[in-house]
Design a protein around this nucleic acid. Sequence first.
RNA 1: CGGGGCGUGGUGUAACGGCUAACAUGCAUGACUUGGGAUCAUGUGACUCCGGGUUCGAAUCCCGGCGCCCCGACCA
Length: 417
Amino acid sequence: MRQSQLFTRTRKEAPKDEVSKNAQLLIRAGYIYKEMAGVYAFLPLGLRVFNKIVGVIREEMNDIGGQEVSLTAFQQKETWTPTNQWDDKEVDVWFKTQLKNGTELGLAVTHEAALTKLMKDFVSSYRSLPQYVYQFQTKFRNETRAKSGIMRCREFVMKDLYSFSRTQDEHNAFYEKAKQAYEQVFKRLGIGNQTYLTFASGGMFTKFSHEFQTVTDAGEDLIYVDENKKLAVNKEVLNDEVLKDLGIHRADLVEKKAVEVGNIFSLGTRFSDALELNFLDEKGVKKPVIMGSYGIGPARVMGTIVETLSDKDGIVWPEAVAPFKVHMIVVDSKDGSARAAADALYAALQKAGIETLYDDRDLRPGEKFADADLIGIPYRVVVSEKTIAAGKHEMKVRATGEVRSLAETELIDTLRE
RNA sequence: CGGGGCGUGGUGUAACGGCUAACAUGCAUGACUUGGGAUCAUGUGACUCCGGGUUCGAAUCCCGGCGCCCCGACCA
């Protein structure tokens, strides 16, 4: 894409109503727009990043047998009354509204009850199980205090997968697979090293649930990390009994602030009992379906990446999520030769299928370099009189600052990898 | 939901209760310039968040509302 056609613009200064690093950088670079507290729109660059993250998650969910759907944001009151969760005392973050005729509706806070109800139309025999169903859907939560930029919003998309199993063993086996898939997701998204499988409270059916916590000062949670075992315990469940269960020692633990980028937990039969999602087993015995729930918030992951990987000059995207792979800059020359060479290289990159943002704006080089650092695309390629004279292109790696001088074919091969 | 802070051109800031609300940046036009946000010129752009009050006079003081940020609580 030619940058001259991008409608967004960078800013030198962060808006005064944002303190968090993720919001400041994402707004300055033109990735997001704040509609109101805890509600952000995604702009062209931001949506590209968001979709990259979604794509990685989708691949991993498909790999473990997930089937993608899209449920609704409106939900009926009746969906939630069986588990008593329509009650504002039980769930205090509802946005509720109604139809013209007075029928009450809720804007989805989450979807386990809605999907459980839906699955009743399709599940009645052991033959139709297990099933793994997921979606990327907007959740609405009337948080009393939205904060930390895009890390804790009132409207946000979540990937939520729900498992429907026949037996506890079958559930446990999938749960382990999901755990591994999540580790793979965070590794691919570039935050694997800072992200810990964390033991957290399990609710009423299991001793623990599992969170994926990424260490950052911007986090809201306190976790206790055992660096050797690559495990952590959420402060909410830290006690001697838990440590003994997990075979870890207090002396090995280091307290860290972290943000919950994913969580998985067993639901047991809470929803299947309440909503009567049952199946007949091989012997014709009626049994409730055993369920699990698995969530990741792509926007929160995006914010977490910015928090953990940016530097003083701006954002540093991992390749897997960057809006473009290459940011190509032309430093204009008097005779127009640099511009002509840059146009040609852009065409070659396009032809090679390399996602390129081409800074063809009529600006001085300093401003383009500063913008490139801020926007944070992994590879910067400069075309100027200097590079033309050298007969090679200049490529700079955003993350490391490494600069390489490459012939065009070498450059394209390197970027294709 | 408790506590604290803050609302001034698009953005970031300034202005003792007193002159036409200032500066920077952005944007527009032109000149000059082209390897790290240059320089110059001329423009553009604000009912000082909203409503009330005090005062000869309010961006400034007082009351109410709304919005935003931070700390804490909450996060099924």
